[in-house]
């Protein structure tokens, strides 16, 4: 399965970034082979709608699932419209993208059911 993990850095060993829309980049990894690539998050500089933009970005990358610390309501809706599974990993412990991959393989990640924070308002 193609998994997009939000990270802060350039490699799978970079730290996990618990934010979704504002993550520095996404590590796209094949959970079967372990082959990975890193893609800068274009939504990082968005003034609004970062979650929507990031969700479309990972959809275009071909991700079938994402792992992040939290999803705003709009990111959640966009990901679910794209049939992309949404996994949660706590962001309060220092972990790398590789650690997240291991946790995913071990079946330790829970799926987000609804939104984990209220998102942003403003215009």
């Amino acid at each position: 399965m193609k998994l997009a993990i939000s990270i802060a850095g350039q490699t799978i060993d970079s730290p996990f970034d618990a934010r979704f829309g504002r993550a520095e980049s996404f590590c796209l990894v094949d959970s079967d082979t372990g082959a990975w690539t890193v893609h800068a998050n274009p939504a990082l500089s968005a003034s609004g709608g970062a979650g929507v933009q990031a969700a479309q970005f990972v959809a275009k990358l071909g991700a079938q699932a994402v792992v992040s610390g939290a999803y705003g309501p709009k990111a959640y809706d966009t990901l679910s419209a794209g049939n992309i599974q949404r996994f949660l990993a706590p962001g309060n412990e220092a972990r790398s993208g590789a650690d997240i991959l291991a946790a995913f393989r071990a079946g330790q990640l829970t799926e987000a059911d609804g939104t984990t924070h209220g998102g942003h308002h403003g215009g």
């Binding site: 929507v52 933009q53 969700a55 966009t78 794209g82 049939n83 992309i84």
Partner: peptide, 13 residues
């Protein structure tokens, strides 16, 4: 980013 197209769906926020 008020309109999103993913797969065969268009979402408007």
């Amino acid at each position: 980013h008020a309109i999103a197209v993913v797969g065969k769906k268009v979402l408007v926020f």
